[in-house]
Every structure is written in C-alpha cells, then in structure tokens.
Amino acid sequence: MTDSPGILMTLLAFALVLGPLVFLHELGHYAAGRIFGVKAEAFSIGFGREIAGFTDKRGTRWKFGWLPLGGYVRFAGDMNPAGQPDAEWLALPAEERAKTFQSKPVWQRAIIVAAGPVTNFVIAILIFAGLATLYGVNRTPSIVGVVAPQSPAAAAGLRPGDRIEAMGGRGMATFSDLAEYTMLRPGETVPLRIERNGETLTVPVTLATLRERDRFGNEYRKGQLGIRPGKPVYERVGLLRAPVEGVRMVGTTLRSMIDGLGQIITGRRPVDELGGPIRIAGIAGQQLALGPVELVFFIALISINLGFINLLPIPMLDGGHLFFYAVEAVRRRPVGPQVMEWAFRGGLAVLLALFVFVTFNDLGAVGLWRGLAGLIG
C-alpha cells in the first residue's frame, strides 16, 4: 500500500514548481534585454494558443498559453528560430532596427541569453541560503562511527575512528560528501584514502547495491558503504555567509547531476532514470505532500536542472546560442545563415526525440506499459 498525493495536489504542485521557475527564467532574459534597450514583443508562460493576457505600455504582450510546459520571450527582430538577420530585418526603419536583438553586439546578446539560466542558479542559491540560515548545515566530519557487520566497509577493513579523506580520488570533508558520492555508485569499486592514527592508507572497496521503496512506491537503487557517523554536527549559518553556502550547495548539486548524466551516457546507470514533465509533476506532488520545506528544496533542484539543461550546447537551447556567439566572437563574423538553419533544425529534432523518450520513460514509471501488457496478456 502506497500513499498518493492525488491528481489535484500533483497538478497544483507542478504549477507551483514549474510556473514560477519558467516565469523567472524568462524574466531574466527580459530584464537583460531591457538593460540593453531591446524591445520585447511578447512574454509567454506556456506555448500554443493564448488563453489570457494583456499588453503593457511598452507594447509587450504578456500572455498565458494553453500548454504550460515552458515559456518564452520574443524580442523585436526575432523573425526566424535561429535569430539571424534577414531581408525582413534589413527592411525595418533604422530606429526600429536599433531596438532589435540582432542589432546588439555579440557580448550583449550573450548576456541576454545567459541571463535566463543564471537566474535559475540565483534562485537555487537564494533557496539554499535561506534553508542554511533557518536550519543550519550538516558539518559532521567524515569519521567512521560505526561499521556495519558484513558490509563493504567491514570487508575493506574500516574501523571506528578512521577518517575517510578521499573516495574515488575526490576529497571528502564531511559525512554528507561521503553519502552523496556513495549513493550514485551502486556496485562500483572505488579506492578509499583513510587516515588512521596518523597513518594514511589506501584500500579498495566495492559498494553494495541497496534497493529502497519510499512511501509513494518509488523504487531507488543506490550505493551503500555500510558506515554510520559519530555524533552529528550542525552549524548555524549567518546571513553574510548564507549566500556562500548557497553557492557551495548549488555546486555540489551540479556535480551530482553531471556524475549521474555521465553514468547514464556510459551505461553505468539505466536510461529509464531520465524523466520528463510527467515524472516531475509526480515528484512535485509527493514533495508537497511531505511539506512546504521539501517542496521548496525540490524547487531549488528543478531550478538548477533548468539552468543546467538550458546551458547545454544544443541549438534551440540557450547554450546553443551561446556556442554560436562564442564562434562569432572568435571569427569576428556570424556563422552563416545556412549553417545556423541546419543546426537549429538538428537541435529541434534532438529535443523532440528527447521529449518523446523521457515521456516514454515517464509513462513506464507510472505503470502504463505494465497495465497494457496485463490487458493484452
């Protein structure tokens, strides 16, 4: 028997997570564009046909689309997906052309494009900083308190009092660092560098694979070393240090994301762990059911994901634009229109294929394929 947040709570949580994050991401683009004098023709939350909106005194149409899976800012002069100057742009009066995105130097265009993902990271930093101030930060040192019998740690000869200085070549300052590294590597053999009575030792350890199921029925596969810490150490963080702690936590989260993505690419983790909007909605509902703090923490994680994904060098994403701006800055002239057109067509195909793939995974995660197999059988 599993708990379920229900469809209404799931939809509410999804709206609370994705809506504000998309709005703030696009607001980052919009604000940077305003700073550099670029006119915004439309600001949309969601895609497709407009269901509500208004036009402000600057001529920007603020609207909601019927498909709430993203959003966009359309700047003046965006007459084609690649944002390339064309005959229609050249035909604009000089005064109007000066307010278009294409008229700006490459460094200003790069700032406008990067402002969206940067905003996502800033949101996460502020959330983590607030949580660190309110609840403190776990500073429990990476010292072994208890070694579980017949565990990988016991097989490797670890003893209470050992300080684990590094794991897999990565420094381990706290027990949280150990837990984060271990969970992502079930079944892997990694070297441990430990300090014991002033002596440094290096021993290999093969992590166990632990399968857990939470109250919502989600199954997790994670690595286990088989140790527990001694007395937990929590440190309250002041307002001045909180942003620094927020940056550190965002960096730690990004490192875990890159580790996980690398494991999927190299085949060490199954590709069905990649999720899309349906899975995000389900987890958002579960986090809301657990409490507001859990939901806010989840919002920070999704904000980091949005920022990271948008910075990938794939045409159609912010990172793809930034890649071409970097090429333009080096060559001192824009990439040719034909190259840009084919690149953006390819980027669109990649994104559509990825969307179909993660949706297939999501439907499998909610049991659709098992249910259809049962009906057919």
Results as ranks from 00 to 15, higher is better:
Met1Gln: 12
Thr2Pro: 05
Asp3Val: 13
Ser4Trp: 13
Gly6Thr: 06
Ile7Phe: 14
Ile7Lys: 05
Thr10Asn: 06
Leu11Gln: 01
Leu12Cys: 06
Ala15Trp: 03
Pro20Tyr: 09
Val22Met: 10
Phe23Met: 08
Leu24Pro: 01
His25Met: 03
Leu27Met: 14
Gly28Val: 06
Tyr30Ala: 09
Gly33Ala: 15
Ile35Gly: 01
Val38Glu: 00
Val38Lys: 05
Ala40Pro: 12
Glu41Leu: 15
Gly48Glu: 07
Gly48Trp: 10
Gly53Glu: 02
Phe54His: 02
Phe54Ile: 09
Thr55Arg: 15
Gly59Cys: 04
Gly59Lys: 04
Phe64Thr: 00
Leu69Cys: 00
Leu69Arg: 06
Gly70Trp: 09
Tyr72Phe: 15
Val73Asp: 10
Arg74Phe: 06
Arg74His: 11
Ala76Arg: 03
Pro85Ala: 11
Pro93Val: 08
Arg97Pro: 06
Lys99Trp: 00
Lys99Asn: 05
Phe101Cys: 09
Pro105His: 08
Pro105Ala: 11
Val106Cys: 08
Val106Ala: 13
Trp107Gly: 03
Val113Trp: 03
Val113Asn: 00
Ala114Lys: 04
Gly116Pro: 13
Ile125His: 00
Ala132Lys: 00
Thr133Asn: 01
Tyr135Trp: 12
Val137Lys: 00
Arg139Glu: 15
Gly145Cys: 05
Val147Ser: 07
Pro152Asn: 06
Ala154Lys: 04
Ala156Val: 06
Gly157Arg: 05
Pro160Phe: 08
Pro160Ser: 14
Asp162Ser: 06
Ala166Met: 08
Gly168Ile: 02
Ala173Asn: 14
Met183Cys: 00
Leu184Glu: 09
Gly187Ala: 07
Thr189Gly: 02
Pro191Ser: 05
Glu195Asn: 15
Val203Gln: 08
Thr206Cys: 11
Leu210Ile: 01
Glu212Gly: 01
Asp214Ile: 05
Phe216Glu: 01
Gly217Ser: 07
Lys222Asn: 07
Gly223Thr: 10
Leu225Ala: 02
Ile227Lys: 03
Pro232Ala: 10
Tyr234Asn: 13
Arg236Cys: 00
Leu239Pro: 05
Gly246Ile: 01
Val247Lys: 09
Met249Arg: 14
Met249Thr: 13
Val250Ala: 14
Gly251Asn: 12
Leu254Tyr: 09
Leu254Thr: 06
Arg255His: 11
Ser256Tyr: 00
Met257Val: 15
Gly262Lys: 09
Ile264Ala: 04
Thr266Arg: 14
Arg268His: 15
Pro270Asp: 12
Asp272Val: 08
Glu273Pro: 02
Ala281Ser: 13
Ala289Trp: 13
Pro292His: 08
Phe297Gln: 15
Gly320Glu: 05
Leu322Asn: 04
Gly336Cys: 09
Pro337Val: 12
Glu341Gly: 04
Trp342Phe: 11
Trp342Met: 13
Phe344Cys: 10
Arg345Ala: 13
Leu348Asp: 00
Val358Trp: 10
Asp362Tyr: 10
Ile376Phe: 15
Ile376Met: 14
